[in-house]
Amino acid sequence: MSETIDEVATAGPRPTAKRLTRGQLVLRRFLRNKGAVFGLVIIAVLVLVAIFGEYILPWRYDVKDRNAYYAPPDGIHWFGTTQSGGDVLALTVRGLGKSLIIGFAVAIIQTSLAAIIGSSAAYLGGWYEKAWLWVIDLMLVLPSFFLIAIMTTGGPKGPNAWMLLVVLLAAFGWQLSARVVRSLSLSVKEREYVAAARFMGLSTPRLLLRHIVPNIASMLIVDVCLGVGYAILGEAGLSYFGFGVQAPDTSLGTMIAEGAQSTTIAPWIFLTPASLLVLLVMCVNAVGDGLRDALDPGSMSGGRA
């Protein structure tokens, strides 16, 4: 008694929805937040400076100007020089580039790990979940600062040593996000569309990637943004003590460390990278907050009356 298929259905052109898509709606709400927009612009400027800085600026970061040791900011060196004659601006821009790379790389790796581990632990439950929760708790308890310090100073050196730093920072940074992802996934797991997918025979990995992770995407996006700030600060802290980025490579942290010794006589060496660090992290936080408000349908960024 089944229905016979009589005609061949030709798929006509699909009309585009006249209403705003979700992406457009989120963008509109984001743009209303002046602080977040300002932060985004500043970050964009900083990224551009980091990429193209060395072609624009008059001095290169590894050139020592023997005529100017501890020179205060003037017409030749806009932000002064260091003890060995290096141009503070060029060094800072180079350090900024390194900090930005480390920051973004760590944040993306960290959030991806948290997403996969947290959602699978929530969905599969049982011993798998218990094991991962145990690992998370253990790693949260371990003194990550010291471990990273030991591993970077004792480990390989060279121009690409920062990659080890990225791996270590990410490895010790995903735990808290994973816990949040797990609790969010626990509530998504109970939704009926997940049950519907299970009852139509969808395999577990596909189910996780197709149904669970996209529905906690808002949290993940915000997590990446805020993670950038934390990673940069973490790297700066390690480098200050000499553990993170090693010489001759430079980053904001090493610059601050170098400048800290001579704060009283040459404050510009310390102030330049420090202010840039503060500015960068504040802007990243503003963007993260703005995104979170824009993605949250219940927040008070309600429309025009």
Partner: peptide
């Protein structure tokens, strides 16, 4: 066999909002 059987046994849920993936 279970996957095969699922073709013949399907379900309609209660809450129309929650039973469709909003994404």
């Amino acid at each position: 066999e279970r996957k095969q059987l699922r073709r013949d046994l399907q379900v309609v849920f209660q809450d129309p909002m929650a039973s469709l993936d909003p994404r």
